[in-house]
Design a protein around this nucleic acid. Sequence first.
DNA 1: CCAAATTTGATGTACGTAAATCAAAAAATG
DNA 2: CATTTTTTGATTTACGTACATCAAATTTGG
Lengths: 341, 341
Amino acid sequence: MRPTVHDIAAAAGVSLATVDRVLNQRPGVRHVTREKVETAIRDLGYVRDVAAANLAKGRVYPLTFILPASDNSFMHGLNAEIRAAIARSATERTDIRIVEVPAFDPQALVRELETVAAEKPSGVALVATDAPDVRAAVDRLVKDGIPVVTLVSDLTGSLRHHYAGVDNIAAGRTAARLLGRFLGGAKGEIAILAGSMLVRDHRERLEGFAAVMAQEFPALHLLSVLEGRDDPEVAHMLIADALGKNDGIIGIYSLGAGNRGLIRALKEKAVDRALTVIAHELTAHTRAALLDGTIDAILNQDAGHEVRSAIRVLKAKADGLAVIDAQERIRLDIFLKDNLP
Amino acid sequence: MRPTVHDIAAAAGVSLATVDRVLNQRPGVRHVTREKVETAIRDLGYVRDVAAANLAKGRVYPLTFILPASDNSFMHGLNAEIRAAIARSATERTDIRIVEVPAFDPQALVRELETVAAEKPSGVALVATDAPDVRAAVDRLVKDGIPVVTLVSDLTGSLRHHYAGVDNIAAGRTAARLLGRFLGGAKGEIAILAGSMLVRDHRERLEGFAAVMAQEFPALHLLSVLEGRDDPEVAHMLIADALGKNDGIIGIYSLGAGNRGLIRALKEKAVDRALTVIAHELTAHTRAALLDGTIDAILNQDAGHEVRSAIRVLKAKADGLAVIDAQERIRLDIFLKDNLP
DNA sequence: CCAAATTTGATGTACGTAAATCAAAAAATG
DNA sequence: CATTTTTTGATTTACGTACATCAAATTTGG
C-alpha cells in the first residue's frame, strides 16, 4: 500500500498538522522539524494522492489559451479542439478560457499576456509570435510561478516550460527528402509556397527543406519563396503565375496554409504536367487533393493532440508533477493517400 | 457547479441511500423509483466523480497483459512500456501483471485466457493470435463482463471492446506506395519478409501491400513471401539466400520483426546493389540502418502509446465511461532519417 | 526568569462517493 | 386485516488530503 500523510507523521515523529504544514509550505515549522518530515517523505517514497487532494481543495485548474485571430482551417481546427476540451471540463477539473489576439502582432500579445497574468490562472498556453518583447513577457509569467506552454509555434530562448508542437525543421527536412525521392533522379525546379517568413514555424520548415535539398538533391533547384500570406487567393495567383511562366517546375512544397488556392491553381494549370506536390496540414481540401492525386503527400500536426498535451502539461506543472515525455512529444504525421485517418 | 449525489436525491425526491443503490446497481429499489432517479441523473447531467468514487472504494484496477514470448526488439519494447506503466501504478491506481505465452500458439493463448479470466481482473489486454478458439475465449471474457482490448494484432469478429494498434492494411498500402514511388518507374522484383502468415497483422500488411502494388506499380513483381518467424537468424538466412540467387531484386518490404537479421544480410550481400528497403518497427537496429542508408523508410507503431491507450481504455470500460476516440487512434508513424524522434 | 513569540499537537470539518446498518414505511401476501 | 416481504430513509464511517481553530509546548528576547 502506498504511504499516506499518517505514515509520514508517524515516521517523522510529528503530528499530522505538521506534515500538512510542510507539504503545503505553510509557515510555522522549525527548520529541523521540516527536514525530519522531508526525510520521511523521501524515505517512504510518499507521493501525494492528487485525486484526494483535488477533492479536498475543490480544485479546478483555470487555464487560458491565447490564439491568433487567423481565419484559416488550421486555426479553426485548433479552436474546435480547445472547445472540445472545454466540454470535458467537468471531469477534468479544468476551467478553460480562449482569448484571441491580432495575428503577427507582438505588442497585442504582450498586452494580453499582462492581462492574463493579472488573473493568476493555473496555466497559460499560447501560440507564440517570435519577438523579444513576447519572450520577456512569457518569462515574467514564469517567474510569477505561472506554468506556460507554447503551442504550434515555439519561443526558444524563453523560460516557457514546454512546447506542444512539431519540430518544424525536421518537418521541412522530411518534406525535402520525400519530394527528392519521389522525383527519382529528375532534374528541375522546385517552387516553394509559404505563408510568411515572419513566423518562426514557416522559417524553420524552409530552413530544414533547403538544407536537405542542397545536400542531397543537387539536381533540384529551389526557386525563391512565394509568400502567400496563408491566403487562398494570393496563393492561387502566385502559383498560377509561376507555373505559367516556368515550365521547368517539377515539384512544389507548400509549407503554410491557404492550400485551397494552390490546389485550384494546380487543377487549372497543371493537368497535363507531372508535378510532385507536398503540402502541410490535413484539411478537407488537402485531403481531397491527396485522394485525387493532386497532392502527393501531406505533413500534418494533430491539433487535438497538441491541445490535450498542453492541458496535461499545464496541470502537471501546476501540481509540480512529472510528465511522460514520450507521451507529450507531438509527432509529425505523414499522410499518403493510403493512411488517411 | 456540477451536480452531486445530493442534488440527484433532492431532484428525484428520494434519499441518498436510494440514489446510491441505483448508481451502484444494488438491489432493493422498485422499478418506478429507479426510473425517477435515472431521470434526475439525465436531467441534471450528473456524472459520477470518478476520483472521489475511487478514493471511497480504495479501488485499484487489476489489469493483465498477455504477450507472446517472442525474442525480438519490438516485443522487448512493448514489455518495457508495460513495465514503465507498472512503475506509474501508484498514481494511476493500476495493478498490472504481464504474462507470456508461447508465440503463434492459439491453444496456449486460450488456456492462459481461461486462467486469467478466473482471476476476474478489471481488464485484459492481449496480443491476439488469430484463431477461432481464441476468438471464442475472448468472447467468453467479454460476456463475463471483463473488458478486453487487443494489442498490436486485432481479432476482428470477436467481441473485444477495442483494438489498440495500427491499421495494418493501411500500413501495407503505405509501404507499397512509398516503395513504388521511391523506385520511380523502375522494373524489377520485390522480396517480402514476414514473420508468419498465421498472425493477422502480418497477413493484413501483406494484403494491403500486394493490393497497391498490383494496382499502381505493375512494373514491380512480388516474389513469394519469406516467413522469418520474427527470428533474426532465420531472417538473415532467407534474405541472404534470396539476394544470392536473384539479382533482379530491387526492393524489399520487411513487414515483421527480426530485422536485425535482415540488416546483417543487406550489409553482407548488397553493399554494391541499389536496393530500396522499407521495414517495420523502429528499434535501435532499424534506426541505425535508417541513418546509414541501409533502410529507406521505417513504418512504426508506438508501443508506448499503445500500452497507455490500452490502459486508458480498459479503465474507462471498467467504469463504463466514454473514451476520446481521436486520442486512442494509434497512428502509423512513418520515419525517414530526418524525422526520427 | 518571565513574558512574548513561535512552533507543534490535537481535533474537527470538508470534498464526493461507497458501503454498511438499522429503523421506518410501504407494498405484497394470505 | 394481520403478517411477511420489500422498499426506502436516516445515519454513520471511511477513503486521503486540505485547512482552520485552539490549546499546549517550546523557544526566544529582554
